[in-house]
């Protein structure tokens, strides 16, 4: 396992939990609605070739839930501050789901510190006529089943959830509450975002599970059509979390995009 540490960094008064490990070019990983609870295998794999920085968003995990956090725009500006505060340059920005949405919102505001962008099953856009899966009506069990193509993984997740400590359950609730706050309506997207995605001029890769039950692959196509020169890779037999379900494909996609630059 790569050397890594977890620390709390103050960003303009917001205590932010940051996991960091590995060495190489800087890679900022923005997590999805489920948060980051540990130095996960996909972070470890990335850390073999990158300096991986994986914060918990404000309102998630061990980070503060600040008063000012109302919407995804607040989150995007927070990360512009975050990169400035940590002095990050030439960042390879990777975001999954909710984190992918945040990453796009950062990129339309400024790519000054961003070298490449990789969106993995990203929220943020809407495709009229193709409904998203409504995660807010799913039970935990149903959510696990719909999150993965491989139902063995879903069953492992369900079994693991039954073993969760009270502290872990509290974090899970916190993540769930903040996800609701950021994405209830408009549901998991910002209608204005698509108008400005043409401003993203860094190499962009879109990685999508073929069997994503939340944002079907056509959502990836919408991103591809909106971001000039972007590439969409559909990962077969894969649900909403390619970095967890199809690690090799995920890593190959990230590397391919980063090597373009």
């Amino acid at each position: 396992m790569a050397d890594h540490k977890a620390e709390t960094i103050d960003i303009n008064g917001c205590a932010t939990e940051v996991r960091r490990g590995g060495s190489g070019p800087t890679l900022l990983f923005l997590h999805g609605a489920g948060g980051i609870s540990a130095w996960a295998p996909y972070l470890d794999a990335l850390a073999e070739r990158y300096d991986v920085i994986a914060p918990s968003h404000p309102g998630f995990g061990g980070s503060d839930d600040p008063e000012w956090l109302d919407n995804i725009s607040d989150m995007a500006f927070f990360y512009l501050d975050f990169m400035e505060e940590l002095g990050l340059e030439d960042v390879h920005l990777v975001g999954n789901s909710l984190g992918g949405w945040i990453a796009s919102e950062i990129a339309v505001r400024s790519t000054d510190r961003i070298k490449t962008l990789t969106l993995v099953s990203a929220a943020g856009v809407n495709v009229v006529g193709v409904p998203m899966g409504d995660i807010f009506l799913w039970s935990n069990e149903e959510a696990a089943q719909k999150m993965f193509f491989n139902q063995e993984i879903a069953e492992q997740r369900i079994a693991a959830a039954a073993e969760m400590t009270d502290e872990q359950k509290d974090v899970q609730l916190k993540n769930y509450f903040t996800t609701g706050k950021l994405s209830w309506n408009p549901r998991f997207h910002n209608p204005d975002l698509i108008k400005w995605l043409h401003r993203v001029k860094v190499p962009t890769m879109l990685l999508w599970g073929e069997n994503d039950n939340i944002f079907p692959p056509v959502y990836g196509e919408a991103y591809r059509d909106a971001i000039p020169g972007s590439e969409l890779r559909i990962i077969p037999e894969c649900g909403h979390l390619p970095h967890q379900e199809k690690l090799e494909d995920f890593l190959a996609g990230v590397d391919a995009n980063i090597s373009k630059n």
Binding site: S139, L173, Y176, G180
Partner: peptide
């Protein structure tokens, strides 16, 4: 109505929710 129908996130504080 299942729990998720009745208890959308943020409708109550985390403590009340629990």
């Amino acid at each position: 109505a299942p729990t998720e129908y009745r208890m959308p996130p943020g409708y109550s504080s985390i403590n009340s929710y629990k």
